[in-house]
Amino acid sequence: MINHFLKKKFAIWTLFFSFVLFWGIFQINQGNGYDRVGPRFFPWLITVSLAFISLYILLKRDSPAPLRIDSHKFFKLILPLTLIFISLEYLGFIISMAILFAFVSYQIKKGPVYILITYGFIVSICIFSIFTYALDLNLPTLLG
C-alpha cells in the first residue's frame, strides 16, 4: 500500500503539505507596519514554490521508482518505537533504552531476546552512568 502511495502520490502529498502550510500562513498575524515584507512574506514564498514544484512533478513527469517499504513492517517498527519513547518518562532511561536496544537489534538481526535484553541493559546502564555521574546530565529515572 505504502509503495503504491509513494509511487503514484508523492507529489499529491507534497501538495497537501503546501496546503497545510497555506493554512498555517493564515494563522500568522501580520502585525502593524509590516505590509510589504512581514512575517508572512517568506513562508508564503516557500509555500507557493512548494505547491508549484509539486504540481510540476504531478503533471509533467513520472516520479522515480521508490525503494520498497513493507507497510506491515513499517507499522511493526514505528508503533513499538513510539511506545518505547512514551515509556521513557515512566520507566526511566535504563529500562526504556534497554528495550529500545533489544528491539532495534532484533529488527535488524533476529537473535535470542534474552541476550539482546542483557546487552541492552549493559549498554544503557553504562550510558546512564556516564551521563548522570560523569557529565552531570539529568536523564529520566524510573517513576520520574
Binding site: 498575524n29 502585525g31 509590516y34 512575517p39
Partner: peptide, 8 residues
Amino acid sequence: LQTGQARF
C-alpha cells in the same frame, strides 16, 4: 524574531 508572531 522581528514581530514576535508565532509561525507554523
